[in-house]
Every structure is written in C-alpha cells, then in structure tokens.
C-alpha cells in the first residue's frame, strides 16, 4: 500500500512542520526583551545643551556610532560619536529646527527632530532678563519677581541680597530639569516600540492569506485548462 504510507508520511510531515514552526515562534517570543535590528535616537534640550540617546530596539545602547546634527535645510552643523552609554551631548549650534541623525553600522539609521520652539523658550527668557537688568541698573536686583519683598521687608532683604532674577531662573530651570529627568527617561523608553504579538501574528496571517489567494488563482487557471 504505497499510497497509504505516502499519506501517513505526509501527515507526519505536516504535523512536524507545524510543530517546528511553533518552536521557532516560541523562540521568537522567548527573546522578546532583546529583540533587535531597529535603531533609534532620542534627543532633548537642557538649557543650551542638546542630549541624545541612541539604542537598539530592546534597550541596548549603541556605542561608537556616529551622530550627525543637521539644520532644517539639511546643512551639516556638527557630528560626534556616542559614548559607552549610547549618549552624545552637544552645545546648541543654532536655534533653528534641528535634525539629529544616527548612523550605526550595517546601514542602520535613525532620526529625531528638535523643533526650534524647544530652544526659544530658554533663550527668550534669558534675553528678557538681560534687558531688564540693563534697564534697572546694577543696584536694584529683583523687583516684581518677588512680591514677598514688599510685604515683609526683613525677609525680602535677605533674599534680595544674593539672588538676581537670572539666578532664580537658572535655579528653577535646574530644578525642573532634575524633576523632569525621569519623565524624559520614560519618554525615551516608550519610543522603543517592539513588535507585538498582534503584529507578528498579523504578518503570519498575511502570508497564509497570500498562499490562499495564490492557490485560488492557480486552481482557477488549472480548471479553465
């Protein structure tokens, strides 16, 4: 009974290939924390410095990769290499739209845009404070910024003694940046989008669907023959 045994072999082949397929799938899922092969770069502004962080999807940092900084028109402003933590920081070269481009080995590339508004907030405030300072002269230091001064002369004097408007701004900025650091980190982590089970299953579904369509058309052309 050669036909029967053929069928049996066919059946074991199908069940085995299906189990093989699921074994590969299982392997894929087991490794999900370390899935790779997409690189990304994330950049944020702190004062007059721009920090960038580069990593492979899955969270591993990219060392020794080149980071290019381009302006909105695509002119190259500066470039540098990422350190051991995948970070690279630079002084803001120009307060326009910036594009930070990461170029890693084997043709990997990622990009992050920093809109000009990110810089403007910082620079305008500092400009204003400088203008105000020159207007009021060196003697009077902070006026409207500290309303407590008018109400309680004693306290205000002690504050007034050492702190200028600029310094307060600086302190607030520093504190804000420290407070926001975890949020920035969280943001940089959330950008890392790994393939989800839905996407993986969706892709496999697409392929099987294509097989069905191909079989349908082949079948139809065979029937018409």
């Amino acid at each position: 009974m050669p036909k029967n045994s053929d069928k049996l072999i066919g059946k074991t082949f199908i069940t085995r290939s299906i189990s093989c397929f699921f074994a590969v799938l299982w392997l894929a899922f087991c490794n999900t924390p370390a899935i790779a092969h997409k690189v990304m770069i994330f950049a944020w502004v702190e004062g007059n410095t721009v920090h960038t962080e580069s990593k492979i999807s899955g969270g591993k940092e990219i060392r020794d990769a080149t980071v290019f900084v381009l302006d909105g028109k695509g002119n190259r402003l500066l470039e540098g290499k990422t350190d051991n933590k995948g970070r690279f920081s630079f002084k803001t070269p120009k307060e326009t739209d910036l594009r930070v481009v990461l170029k890693a080995s084997m043709g990997h590339r990622a990009e992050w845009k920093i809109p000009a508004e990110d810089f403007k907030g910082v620079s305008r405030e500092s400009e204003r404070s400088i203008i105000q300072k020159s207007d009021t002269g060196p003697q009077s230091k902070v006026d409207t910024f500290l309303p407590s001064k008018n109400r309680e002369g004693k306290v205000s004097k002690s504050i007034d003694a050492g702190i200028t408007r600029e310094e307060i701004e600086h302190l607030v900025n520093d504190a804000l940046e420290r407070k926001l650091a975890p949020i920035v980190d969280l943001l940089s982590e959330s950008i890392d989008k790994r393939p989800t089970i839905t996407e993986i299953m969706g892709g496999i579904g697409y392929i099987f669907g294509l097989v069905g369509v191909a079989l349908y058309f082949k079948n139809r052309s065979n029937m018409s023959k």
Partner: peptide, 27 residues
C-alpha cells in the same frame, strides 16, 4: 505554493530570533 508560504512565514518570524553576542545584536 504552500511550501513557499510556510518558508516565507518562517523567514518573517526568524528576524525576531535574536542572537545576543558581542556589542552588536543580530538576528
């Protein structure tokens, strides 16, 4: 057609199997 489809699916999924060796990760 079914063979091509199954192998195409295997290829699609294989890129998710990551080999964690060295500083660069490959699949």
């Amino acid at each position: 057609i079914p063979t091509v489809g199954i192998l195409s699916a295997a290829f699609f999924v294989a890129s998710l199997v990551h080999v964690p060796l060295g500083p660069i990760s490959v699949h």
